[in-house]
Simulated scan of single mutants.
Amino acid sequence: MLNRLRPVLTLLAFALAALPARAFETAATAAWVYDMSTGTVLMDKNADQPLPPASMSKLMTINMLFEALKDGRVTMDTTFAVSDRAVQMTRDGGSTMMLQHNDRPTVEELIHGMIINSGNDACVVVAEGLAGTEEAFAEQMTLRGPAIGLTSSTFRNASGWPAEGHRMSMRDLGILGKRLIEDFPDYYPIFAQTEYSYKGRSPDNRFNRNPLLDLGIGADGLKTGHTSEAGYGLVGSAKQGNRRIIFAITGLPSDRARAEEAERIVGWAFRQFSQKTVAKSGTRVAEAEVHLGDADSVGLVPADDIMLLVPALVQDSVTAEVVYNGPLIAPVLKGSAVAELIIHAPDLPDRRVPLVAEADVGKAGFLKRVLTAGRQLSGQYLGFPAS
């Protein structure tokens, strides 16, 4: 039986003003904005639609190289050969780190070339160095995607060069950016570097295209993208205080429009929402009934602090309910997940937090079990529901 309880803890302290925070209306054709500190999706506009990702899909190539570094297949000093195909990417136009046939760039140099110069040639060199061919590497990326949480991504090349079937969703790009931040903290700071020139060859292409890095708003990554098919896009991240957001947008008409929209999103995400501590770890939120236990109920507590993101201006109160399948059957072990706290905040998806038992509840003694069984039998005999 699913029980619903009103929490003992009051969650109504966030009714701060008379007007609700309005949803952000973005000019991007698709967008996903995520608060990493609380796990809250702040915006979802066509976020699961597979779209041409342009150079933003280089994040997957970078991820594959970071994974190779992490598991020891390569080191920062490993060198790769430069093929005709890689050199041709420079001749075909687009972003480049200006590699030549006789170069033997290191993994460290290629990482800088992919991130800062957005080098298509660098991506081809990495793909061939890790998988033999770019086609094999693209297949590996497609197969790897679901294992790291990507649900709408297929890859046809390593650089994001326009190709039929080369697609990623904005949610996938955001999830991928989140992974690069959380799983590769030693390498992530490279995304914030503003310029790089391999052997001094890229005077016109040495600057990082991320328009947010020099604005003093906490931006430190990740990757821009542009093709005529995709429009202008950006996977970005910014950190202010204890909060970090990540976002992915695409379909803007110009690099200026991309820069302005990205800055607006960062400002909105940090100014229109505030982070609150709803409950500390171990704070009793509610009580659950226990059947045939040496206690009739057990306290329900969060195992970790509950941090909630709420609109800075809300009209309705933040509300919550506790749900569990009950009554719980003894024995109940302290720390076992037995219930769920569901928090409802205006203009945001419900937040679900597991609750654990505050204490052990053992089985009832023989006499209590007999008396309980007797009451149940009496209730059934008299036509009353069993208690």
Rank of each mutant, 00 (worst) to 15 (best):
A192P: 02
G216L: 10
P185R: 03
Y196P: 05
I148F: 01
Q193E: 15
L215W: 13
M170F: 01
G149V: 09
L150E: 04
G177M: 05
R201T: 13
D183T: 10
L173P: 02
F191E: 00
A163Q: 12
A158P: 15
S153H: 02
Y196K: 04
R201Y: 13
Y187D: 13
D186T: 12
N208G: 10
P203E: 06
M170T: 14
N157R: 04
T151M: 12
S169G: 08
L180C: 08
R167I: 14
G216R: 09
L180N: 04
Y198T: 00
P146G: 14
L176P: 08
D214T: 15
S153D: 08
D172L: 02
R156C: 12
F191A: 01
L150A: 10
G149S: 05
F207T: 13
D214Y: 07
N210A: 03
A163V: 07
L176V: 13
T151S: 11
G145N: 06
G149D: 04
Q193P: 01
I217K: 04
Y188K: 02
S152Y: 11
W161M: 10
E195W: 02
S159Q: 06
G218V: 11
S197C: 11
M170K: 05
Q193A: 12
K199T: 07
F155D: 00
K199G: 05
F207H: 13
G160T: 03
Y187L: 14
G177I: 03
N208L: 12
P203L: 04
R156P: 07
F155E: 00
P203R: 04
G200N: 06
G149M: 07
L176G: 08
P185D: 05
F155N: 00
T154I: 13
Y196M: 08
Q193L: 11
R201E: 11
L215S: 14
L150C: 09
G200H: 03
L176Y: 11
R167P: 01
G216A: 11
I175L: 15
K178N: 08
E195I: 05
I190Q: 03
R206W: 09
Y196H: 07
N210T: 05
P146S: 13
S169D: 09
S169I: 09
G165W: 05
P203C: 07
S159W: 00
G174M: 14
T151N: 10
D186L: 14
F184Y: 12
Y188W: 11
S202Y: 03
N208Q: 10
F184H: 04
Y198A: 00
I148V: 14
N205R: 15
T154C: 11
K199M: 13
E195P: 13
L180M: 11
R179V: 15
A147G: 10
Y188H: 09
G165P: 01
I190L: 12
T151V: 09
L215R: 15
P146K: 14
Q193F: 09
F184T: 04
L150F: 02
L180E: 06
L215N: 15
